[in-house]
Design a protein around this nucleic acid. Structure first.
Lengths: 215, 215
DNA sequence: CTCGTTTTGTTCTCCCGTTCACAAACTCCT
DNA sequence: AGGAGTTTGTGAACGGGAGAACAAAACGAG
């Protein structure tokens, strides 16, 4: 379930605040969800609560962490060390949550031997070797859109089965490979859409005429 | 609808490839969705297709762009010019899609007067002035989690009604304000979850004992 | 002009997620 | 020990989105 990491973060916040026990109502408000939904989600993991009392923060936190898989260490490769790739490599939230950036790869020779966040940038062709040697299962794509599909193919070819894609392109991958997409400009466009509806603006400018030709 | 930007991107790709007309089937495959869903989405905008022929790429592209609101120019402020904020400021996909970064703000004086992507970093307290002078309606939060709620409150206070939040925190905002959240570590955690299920790993290490105290 | 083919727009059905509501269970106070 | 007050876990109703299937419409051939 995609909400488990949100609950985990909320539990971490409660633990930091010194809370030992919390009700579903309380945890739900911190996580920003409905309390019934929270209880139903947690019940799928098992009966970790105590009726009349609530949930033990530390115990539930470990159970969710184990369910997600962040009790173990996940090696990650990042391909495409442009602005975004560098920001991702430097992002402290990865290491603190069980992810370890084992390699930064880029096809551009000008970026090789550059060091970002303590990790050396290496040629993209090192992909297969790194994945084999480090047992990498998760890959991050931060390349331009045109390169994304090729990178994904190479990743899948050497055994990566989970891909986080920041490139604005739809990736075709075989069944069994999970792809999650984060598209920054689409997020902004969705906001603009709602914003426009709020403002009630109708831009009526230079509409192209309707023409139908051959494909 | 949140899929409109995806369709727009697919149409741009088709237009670049020189395609003048396309069927819903074709466009749906490029956009990576079901053709029936695509037709239903488009029919909500109006009857822009021709039965037996398909959709005129250029015409439909303009209609969707107008519906989303990217025919006009949206001024945007970015708050928090760390690694991620710099990457966002440098991201070319914003400007090319109708968004204009009018200000970079940061509370840290050490970052002031620094220039990122041609825009000077200014004090966070300039927020109100910038929003008023430039008519900003969309704000981006790329600060650490602890500062996010304060930044959001200030943004809402000076009239921003759409927020794109990259900080790992749940924001409380009044009704009428849209918030979209992009959480990088949560995306990776979701991948780790699926990855673990695929591998069938059960990590049984040092589980804390269940204890129930007072909150 | 008429018929067959192609493709859109729409209706209908199904399924999943969300939410309400309540019974079971646990604690605390008397 | 017993009852009142909480809080979890879950059954049931509700809503909406997704996909299949079909009718309407446009185009081209004869």
């Amino acid at each position: 379930m995609a909400r488990l990491p949100v609950y985990l973060r909320a539990l971490n916040a409660l633990a930091d605040a010194g809370t030992a026990t919390c009700s579903s109502e309380h945890l739900a408000s911190v996580a920003g969800v409905n309390s019934a939904k929270l209880r139903k989600d947690l019940s799928h993991l098992g009966s970790y609560g105590t009726r009349g009392v609530g949930y033990d923060v530390e115990y539930l936190r470990y159970q969710i962490a184990r369910e997600i898989g962040v009790t173990q260490d996940w090696p990650v490769v990042i391909v495409g060390i442009g602005n975004l790739g560098q920001a991702l490599a430097s992002f402290s939230g990865f290491r603190s949550r069980g992810f370890r950036v084992v390699a930064l790869l880029d096809a551009d020779p000008d970026r090789h031997d550059q060091v970002v966040a303590g990790v050396e940038v290496r040629p993209f062709d090192d992909l297969e070797g790194v994945v084999r040697d480090q047992g990498v299962a998760i890959g991050v794509i931060a390349t331009p859109a045109v390169a994304a599909q090729d990178v994904a193919d190479r990743m899948v070819g050497c055994g990566i089965t989970s891909i986080l894609n920041f490139a604005p392109a739809v990736l075709a991958v075989p069944a069994g490979v999970d792809v999650r997409k984060v598209d920054l400009s689409i997020e902004l466009q969705i906001l603009a859409y709602h914003q426009q509806r709020k403002a009630g603006v109708d831009a009526t400018a230079a509409a192209p005429t309707r023409k139908v030709g051959s494909a």
